[in-house]
Measured scan of single mutants.
Amino acid sequence: MDTYKLILNGKTLKGETTTEAVDAATAEKVFKHAANEHGVHGHWTYDPETKTFTVTE
C-alpha cells in the first residue's frame, strides 16, 4: 500500500488529508467520495510523482 494525499482548494473548505490505498484509482475514489460529502466539486488533478490529488473549485 502507498500513501496518497488530497489537497482541497474549495470555495468554503480548504485542507489536506491522506489515505492508504493499493493504487491511485482506489485513492481517487476515496478522495472524490470525501470531497462530495463536504460539498467540494471542481477540477481534479493528479501528480503521480508526489501521489497528490488536488481539487480546485
Results as ranks from 00 to 15, higher is better:
Glu49Gln: 11
Gly10Tyr: 07
Ala35Trp: 07
Asn9Val: 13
Ile7Val: 10
Pro48Asp: 09
Thr3His: 07
Thr18Ile: 09
Met1Cys: 12
Thr54Glu: 07
Thr12Lys: 12
Ala27Val: 02
Gly15Pro: 04
Tyr4Thr: 03
Asp47Ile: 05
Glu49Gly: 10
Val40Cys: 05
Glu16Trp: 14
Lys11Cys: 14
Glu37His: 11
Lys5Ile: 12
His41Thr: 13
Val55Met: 04
Lys11Ile: 15
Phe31Cys: 01
Phe53Met: 01
Gly10Ile: 09
His38Ser: 12
Gly42Glu: 01
Ile7Tyr: 05
Ala25Pro: 08
Glu49Thr: 12
His33Gly: 09
His41Lys: 13
Thr3Phe: 07
Glu37Val: 14
His43Tyr: 13
Lys32Trp: 09
His43Ala: 12
His38Asn: 10
Phe31His: 00
Val30Asp: 05
Lys51Val: 02
His33Val: 13
Asn9Ser: 07
Lys11Leu: 15
Leu6Phe: 08
Trp44Asp: 00
Met1Tyr: 13
Thr17Asp: 06
Met1Trp: 12
Met1Leu: 13
Tyr46Leu: 02
Ile7Ala: 03
Thr18Lys: 08
Ala24Gly: 04
Thr19Lys: 03
Thr50Asn: 10
Lys32Val: 08
Lys32Pro: 01
Glu16Met: 13
Thr54Ser: 05
Thr17Gln: 14
Gly39Val: 05
Tyr46His: 01
Lys11Glu: 10
Lys32Leu: 10
Asp2Pro: 07
Asp47His: 06
Glu16Gly: 06
Gly42Asn: 02
Asn36Ala: 14
Lys5Asn: 05
Phe31Asp: 01
Thr56Ile: 07
Ala24His: 08
Asp47Ser: 07
Thr50Ile: 06
Thr18Met: 09
Asn36His: 13
Tyr46Ser: 00
Thr45Arg: 07
Lys11Asn: 11
Ile7Glu: 04
Trp44Ser: 00
Lys51Thr: 02
Thr52Pro: 00
His43Pro: 06
Met1Phe: 12
His38Tyr: 15
Pro48Arg: 06
Asn9Tyr: 11
Asn36Thr: 10
Asn36Ser: 12
Lys51Met: 07
His41Pro: 04
Asn9Glu: 09
Thr12Pro: 04
Val22Lys: 12
Glu49Phe: 11
Thr17Gly: 07
Thr12Val: 11
Lys51Arg: 12
Thr52Asp: 00
His43Arg: 12
Thr17Leu: 15
Glu37Phe: 11
Thr26Met: 12
